[in-house]
Structure formats: C-alpha cells, structure tokens
Design a protein around this nucleic acid. Structure first.
Length: 714
DNA sequence: CTAGGGTTAG
C-alpha cells in the first residue's frame, strides 16, 4: 500500500505539480517540510557569543533556562502521535498534512536492513589463497584476466562473491567485477554491486561508484540501504557533499526509506556542510518517526557542535542521550571531549571524563589526547599533572600523537623539566621517536622560557638526527633568538631554514618584524630587515615608509590597508603591534598613534574599549608594550577632551593588562604600571582583580584638570 | 576491508 502511494508521489513530483497543500509529506526529502521556527530559536540562542563563564553541567539548567525550556516541550511531544500535540508543535501544520487526522509520516525505517547470512563455503581456503595471489601480482589487466582462468573452483555465485570480497586494491576488484559480468554465469544481484562499491570506496572512486549505481538503475537492480549508504559515504569522503545529498533525496523520490545507518550517514554529511539546522531538522523528524538514535548518531551530533564550539549544542546531545537512556561509548565520549575543548569548557570536559571512568569505560589514546590538550589550553596545570599521573599508574595507552600533545601541553604550562623527560622517553621508545612536531614543541618550550642556548642545541641536534625543521619550529626559534638579542644566530638560523626548504608564512614574518622592533642598533636592524626582505618585501617597504616623517597619513593608510589585507588574519594584529613598537622605539609617537588608529579602523583590536554605563574599560591584553602605551595615551587624551567638554563619564575606569600567564603578555602589567607612574595617572592595581588597574571618576577628573591649569573649560 | 554509519596534533 505504501509503495503505491509513494510511486504516485513520485509521479506527482515528476509531473511538475508544485501545489504544496496537495502533496503528502513523504513526497519530498524531509528537510523541506520542517518548520524552521524552533530551530532558528535554538540556533539564535547559540549563535551569540557564548556566556562568559557558562556553568558546568550540573548547574546549567538553572542558570540558562532558555534552552531547556525550548527542549522540554520537544522531547515530550516528538514521540506523541496525537495530531493535536503535533499541530501545536508545528508552526504550519496545514501545509504539512494531507490529512491532519493521520499521524505524521515516517522519514526513517525503524528496521535496519538485514544482511543475508551466507552459508559456510568449504572452498574458502583455496579461494582465499587464490585471491591473495591475485592481490600480490598482475599489474596489467590482460595478465590479471588471464590469471582468472586458473580459478581453483567453478565460478559459482558464492565463490564469485567471496573472491570479490577478498580482492584489493580497488582496481582488481573492479576488473574482477567487470569480468564476472561478461561471464554471465548468474544474475548480478545487489550484493555484487555493494561489495564492488565498498572496494571502490577505499580508492575514493566516486565516479566509478556513481557509474555502477546508474548501471543498477538501468538494469533494474534494486538499490538497497547498503548501496545508498556506501554511495553517500564515498561522496562524503570525496567531499562531494552535493552528490551525497542528491543520492539521499533520490531514496525518498523512489520510495525507498532510509534505515538508521543511511540516516546517520546523511546527518554527518549535513554536519560536514555546517548545516546545523538541517541536521537538527532531520534528527527531530527521525525522532518523531519513533527512531531511537544510537551512539554513532550522537557522535555525529557531538562533532558537529564541537566544530562551532556550540556549548548549548553539546548539552543538548548529553540531555538527549540521558533522556533516551543511550549509554555513550568511548567514541561518543571522545567526540564530546573534543567538542567541549573547542567550546572552551574545560570543566565540562573534566566532569565528562570522570563520568566516563565511572561508567567503566577505559580511555584510549584519543580520549587522553583530547583531555591533555584541553587542560594545557586552559592552563589547568594541576589537573594536567593529575591526569598524567593517572596515565602512568593505569598504563593507559600512549601513541605518537598523545606524546606530542603532552609536549605541547608542557609548552602551554611552561613545564620545561617534564617536557625534557617526555622527550627523552620518546627517544628511548621503539615507535614514538621525536619527529618535527616533537622538536617544534621543545623549541616552543625553550623559546617561551627564553632558553636560547638549549633551543640552539636542539636546532643543531635536528640536523644530526635528520628531523626536518618546520615553519613553526623556525618561528619559535627566531622569536627566542630575537628576545635574547642574538641577531647573528637568528640570521644564521633563518638562512639555514630557508635553505632547508622552510617556506616563511605570515606568523614567521610577524616574528621577524618583532625582532626588527627589538633591535638596539642600526647594524642589527639592517640584518633583521634583510631577513624579512626575503620573506615579505612589501612589509619591509611599509616599515621604511612609516619611518619617513614626511610620509602622509593617507599614504600610510593605503599601504597599511594593502599589506594587512594580504596578511593571514592571525598575523594581522601582531604586525600592527610590531609596527607601533618600531615607531615608539624610534620616538615616532605621532606615527604610533596613527598606526593604532588604523589598527582599530581595520578591526584588528576588537574589544579594546568596553563601555558600560558604570564603567569604561581599556583591555590591552592583546597589545604589545608599545601599542598598550599608545592606547593608554590615546585613551587619556580622549578622556581629557570629554572632561573639558563636561560630557557624561562613568563612575569607574579600568585598564586590563592581564597577569602575564600568557607568554605573549608577559611584562605588560609592570610596564603599564611604570607608564602610568610616569604620567602620574590615578590608576592603581585592583585588589580584587589581578592584572587590572582601576581609577574613579573623581580622581581622573581632578587629574585631568591638574594637567590643564590655565585652559578655559567653557 | 567477509555488502553500509561516528573520534586524535600548532
């Protein structure tokens, strides 16, 4: 009955009727009919910047009720079959129903496609050996095909399937598949196509797979869920997402209902496309069809929310699993841990990990890698060290990536000795010898610790053991040597790196530019500039331009715009910071102010100045010392004007320098304090908040007035 | 890889 209704539906669709009201829901893929209202509400709650300090799982519902409010009616109603509830839930029920008295159409088959069980084949050993021989020889098609004549047993259907399953790589499977077709000994069933497609998928041969699918269609061989899921996942692996969607939609058009494997595969496709609303629509439609999603689906959802750092989304996944009583497995925990890391929620990561252990699951390398990364990034030294201890005492599995992640964690936390010990462990190990990632992490550690000698030792060691220096390692080393004012070493390292094939990127140029700003004499500066000249001549031209006093502001602006516009986003602010530092070090203060203005104009310092009714805050944490000074001067200048004009001012003023826990902001606080002292500005270190300087309106106004002794303030 | 879905590094 259903199939006739479906074929009628296909006819309607193909005959071009577009009347929405007449078409039953299953005429189109489920995406088209989903009321968007709920999902836009859901998404808009997450598209805003996440709450500053979102609470952890336990407290979350109380503090952020909007989401659970949205979700509660959802979980209660999705499984309801009564049209009244459905109608309340859907915003446009009329257009979605042929007959509102009937329950909603299903979008997913609740029965997973069954596999045919093959009986034991006594010839399996011979055939396997034969396949092995074919796999290991016969490069040419002619040789391969003639070898097929020596098949040890008759080519029955089952023997052919067994061989088809055992051949690799895909070229041989494909040749064999084509050959058995020419033999015409038995009809080519769906399973032959499915096995052939699977092999082709290993070779990412989407075009060949699609050709086979079209051949099935023209030969009227049924495409089943296994066929479709193979096509869809191959398209996905080849990044042909539109193809994946196209074949998925074809299922509904032809009246084939996807089962949960195909369904979760397409969810992953939409997730990869970043189409969060569509994924949620499909998910909800599946749920409304009575589907109980399995851990794989939740892993797909978890990864999707991780990609956008969507904390509410992660909580949604957890909540769904809890309410459906789906027990997460290791993979689900791993993806959720990754996701919480991307969402910047180390507390949730930690509690998830505890929950995982309590449920009796054993963490694997990926689990530990995710967690180590999170603790390092969050600078949670205590938790990181406890975890490390746990890893050793439980002898949890270690692999290469985990070693390198641990080294990076040490870099984040400044744990030089621990890193050295790990690095030694790696050298002693059988399978985890340090590679360029490991060396880079060590260079990062020595670099941020200012240990130029050890960094240089490592650099020399790399050439001895034959590990390639990469651009990141080169950047760390140059930064370190620059800070140590070891310009000769810096020039040598840069030259050798270029010789060895390091391609300078914008971050490396930023480091070279900062070395230029640090140079204390002209000779050093010339040598640093000539390195930069090789990597980025236009940047050097800009450096020269800003140092010419006669250059007009308009010229600077145009050149600045052009250089910054051609710079990777993450290197733009560092470029501007260094340019300002260069000006300040050469007493070109006015030019420094112009550059800060341009930096603000082009959006390099978002959030530099935060105003509320009660407080104005200057946040210089992402600025270099010179840029922070310039910003403070600029701020004071503006405040003076406002005081003079007697405009409204807030009660409190604050300047945030940070406490130097981040290696790039070290010393910002103390140099800021010195600068404030020099100006005799009324800012003092806040007692409650480290790295924050505060001043009251009264103090500030009287300070400004004292600096303007005889001006008429009319 | 015994016909199909999910997870690791600046």
């Amino acid at each position: 009955m259903a199939s006739t209704a479906l074929s009628a539906a296909v006819d309607v669709r193909f005959s071009g009727h577009s009347s929405e009201t007449k078409r039953p829901i299953f005429f189109t893929s489920p995406l088209i009919r989903i009321p968007k209202k709920r999902f836009t509400a859901y998404c808009s709650s997450t598209s805003k910047s996440p709450p500053k300090s979102a609470p952890d799982l336990a407290q979350s519902d109380q503090k952020n009720p909007s989401l659970s409010e949205q979700l509660r009616p959802l979980t209660k109603t999705t499984l309801s079959d009564t049209p009244k509830d459905q109608a309340n839930l859907l915003s446009k029920p009329k257009s979605t129903w042929v007959n509102p008295a009937k329950p909603k159409r299903s979008v997913i088959s609740l029965q997973r496609q069954k596999r045919s069980s093959h009986s034991y084949n006594p010839q399996v050993r011979d055939l396997r050996r034969f396949a092995q021989k074919l796999n290991n020889s016969y490069i040419s098609e002619a040789g391969f095909v003639s070898a097929l004549e020596e098949i040890p047993h008759p080519l029955t259907r089952d023997n052919a399937l067994l061989l088809l399953n055992s051949l690799k790589p895909w070229q041989k499977t494909h040749m064999f598949f084509n050959w058995i077709k020419t033999q015409k000994l038995f009809p080519m069933e769906t399973i032959f196509y499915n096995v052939a497609m699977k092999s082709l998928r290993f070779g990412r041969q989407f075009q060949l797979i699609e050709d086979l699918a079209n051949e099935m269609i023209s030969n009227e061989i049924e495409l089943d869920n296994i066929t479709y899921s193979t096509i869809i996942t191959c398209a996905k692996r080849c990044k042909l997402f539109d193809k994946a969607v196209e074949w998925f939609e074809r299922m509904y058009k032809t009246g084939k209902m996807p089962d949960e494997v195909t369904y979760s595969a397409i969810l992953d496709v939409y997730a990869n496309l970043g189409k969060v609303e569509e994924v949620l629509s499909l998910y909800e439609r599946g749920r409304a069809s009575g589907w109980k999603p399995d851990p794989i689906t939740f892993s797909v959802l978890g990864k999707m929310f991780g990609e956008t750092g969507d904390y509410d989304g992660i909580r949604y996944v957890l909540q769904e699993m809890r309410s459906l009583e789906v027990q997460p497995n290791v993979v689900v925990y791993n993806t959720l841990l990754e996701a919480t890391g991307k969402a910047g929620k180390p507390g949730l990561a930690r509690s998830l990990f505890v929950e995982m252990l309590e449920s009796g699951l054993k963490p694997n390398e990926k689990t530990l890698t995710a967690l180590v990364k999170i603790y390092g990034k969050a600078r949670w030294a205590r938790d990181a060290m406890e975890l490390w201890e746990q890893m050793r005492s439980n002898s949890w599995p270690m692999d290469f990536i985990l070693y390198n992640t641990l080294l990076n964690m040490c870099a984040d936390l400044g744990l030089e000795e621990e890193a050295e010990k790990l690095f030694e462990d790696m050298k002693q190990s059988e399978h985890c010898k340090p590679d360029s990632w490991s060396y880079t992490a060590m260079l990062n550690i020595y670099g941020s610790g200012g240990n130029a000698d050890k960094a240089m030792e490592l650099f020399d060691e790399m050439s001895v053991v034959g590990v390639q220096l990469n651009v990141m390692g080169c950047t760390c080393l140059i930064q370190c040597l620059g800070k140590a004012r070891r310009i000769s070493d810096m020039v040598r390292v840069f030259g050798i790196s270029i010789e060895r094939g390091v391609k300078p990127d914008d971050r490396l140029c930023g480091c070279l530019l900062s070395v230029v700003s640090l140079c204390e004499n002209e000779d050093d500066e010339d040598r640093a500039v000539s390195c930069l000249e090789q990597a980025n001549p236009r940047l050097v031209a800009l450096v020269k331009l800003i140092q010419e006093e006669e250059t007009s502001f308009e010229t600077i602006k145009e050149e600045f715009r052009s250089v910054i516009g051609n710079t990777a986003i993450e290197a733009r602010r560092p470029f501007c910071n260094c340019l300002i530092d260069i000006c300040r070090n050469r007493n070109l203060h006015e030019r420094a102010h112009e550059l800060l203005y341009l930096g603000i104009l082009f959006g390099l310092y978002p959030g530099l100045h935060n105003k509320t009714a009660d407080e104005w805050c200057l946040d210089v944490r992402s600025l270099s010392v010179g840029a922070a000074h310039t910003a403070l001067e600029e701020w004071m200048g503006t405040l003076c004007k406002i005081v003079q004009r007697k405009e409204a001012l807030p009660e409190m003023f604050s300047a945030q320098t940070g406490t130097g826990t981040h290696k790039f902001s070290q010393g910002l606080g103390s140099s800021f304090a010195a600068h404030v002292r020099k100006l005799a500005a009324p800012f003092r270190q806040s007692e409650e908040k480290a790295g924050c300087f505060v001043a009251t309106r009264e103090d500030l106004v009287s300070w400004v007035e004292s600096r303007l002794p005889s001006t008429v303030t009319a």
